[in-house]
Computed example of a mutant assay.
Amino acid sequence: MTLALAEAAAEALVRVEVARRELFLAPLRSRMARVAGVHFDNQKTVLERKLRERGAHLNESVCREGLGDAVAGLMITIFDEFAVDTADAMREILMMAMEGAIKHRLLDFGYAMSFSLRNPAAQRYLKTYCLNEIKKIDATTLKIMKGIVYQGLYEGASYTEIAARMVSRYAAFGTPVPQHHLRNRAELIATYETATAYEAAGREVADTIAKKGIPIEKSSITVGDDRVDAECLAKEAQKWIPLDQPFTTHLQKDNVEHQRSPFHIACRCTTIYRVATKRAREMLARSPNPAPVEFYAIIK
């Protein structure tokens, strides 16, 4: 096989990998977006009712005193009301994303084995993770709502006007966002959370095999369309690098040493892995399958 043919074959395999990930994650992203959408809708409904009740019992001047702190307290009670139910729905979807990633990576390394992440330890770990992620989502929501309040007070808006802006902003969580491949904030969250679960699980498989003394390499792959940003393209251009070497570029927007994708909240990249040398591939072929229990706690 000529070098050109070999490179073409390798590129075709990479595109198959990207397509496999997308085909698997697309329905999970849709489910996660619905979960996030319901989370926001539930919060909006309660917020609208509580703001209306507050306005009915307090006059405009009283409501304006300490309104920012009052709204913060109100939002926190609303967040607490829905966090657990959302975490339970989120956990099931992320579990499926992780199981799919482990299956894909094990097949990539030549393993065929049965496993399950549905054990008590994994469930507890993932529920804690989901609750923490929801806290981050709600913290962003609180920041947005407080910003609306303080902007309204600065402009001299009435309590009624400020309350209407808050409810309207919640409804806007379903309107387009700057990332053109995503429709709204719910889809942005769904893209990031499902990708994080999938990619973390895939990395865990690579780490498990590397612990056997088998050298592993990794490469970041973009989806290949015209909406890929410069940071992701630069990391893809690094080609194959050692497993523990971070993907770095001066174009990235943070100071984090990224070991795997996603590299930012709207990232659609995937990280793929391979055994580094022919001798290592022979070692892998002779090694026993990793134990399923090694894959129970994998979001890092």
Rank of each mutant, 00 (worst) to 15 (best):
M1Q: 09
M1D: 12
T2G: 14
L3D: 08
A4S: 12
A4I: 14
E11H: 10
V16R: 09
E17F: 09
V18Q: 01
A19L: 12
A19P: 02
R21V: 14
L23F: 07
F24V: 11
L25M: 04
A26Q: 12
P27G: 08
L28I: 07
V35G: 00
G37P: 06
F40E: 02
K44E: 09
K44G: 03
L47V: 00
E48K: 15
E48P: 01
A56F: 11
E60K: 12
V62T: 12
V62Q: 13
R64M: 14
L67C: 07
L67P: 05
G68D: 14
F82R: 15
F82C: 00
T86L: 04
D88R: 14
M90H: 10
E92Y: 07
E92F: 12
A97C: 12
G100I: 01
G100A: 09
A101R: 01
L107F: 04
G110N: 05
G110I: 03
A112D: 14
M113K: 03
M113P: 09
F115I: 03
F115H: 03
P120D: 07
Q123E: 14
Q123A: 15
Y125G: 05
Y125A: 08
Y125C: 03
K127S: 14
K127L: 15
C130V: 03
N132K: 15
E133V: 14
E133N: 10
K135T: 13
K136I: 14
I137A: 03
A139L: 12
K146S: 11
K146Y: 07
G147D: 10
I148F: 05
A157L: 12
A163H: 01
A164V: 01
M166D: 06
M166N: 00
M166R: 00
R169H: 11
R169S: 14
Y170V: 03
A171K: 07
A172C: 02
G174N: 11
G174Q: 08
V177K: 07
P178G: 05
H181S: 14
L182W: 01
E187M: 06
E187I: 05
L188D: 03
T191Q: 11
T191D: 06
E193F: 04
T196Q: 05
A197R: 00
E204P: 06
T208W: 05
K211R: 15
I214H: 01
T222R: 02
G224Q: 07
D226W: 02
R227I: 00
R227L: 10
A230Q: 12
E231R: 13
L233G: 04
A234S: 11
A234Q: 07
E236M: 12
Q238N: 09
K239G: 02
W240V: 07
W240F: 04
I241V: 11
L243C: 12
L243A: 10
Q245E: 15
P246C: 08
F247N: 02
T248W: 08
H250I: 15
E257P: 09
Q259V: 02
P262Q: 02
P262R: 05
F263R: 07
F263E: 04
F263W: 07
H264I: 04
A266W: 02
C269W: 01
Y273W: 08
R274N: 06
V275N: 01
A280W: 03
M283W: 09
N289P: 14
E294I: 01
F295R: 02
Y296D: 13
I299S: 03
I299E: 06
K300C: 12
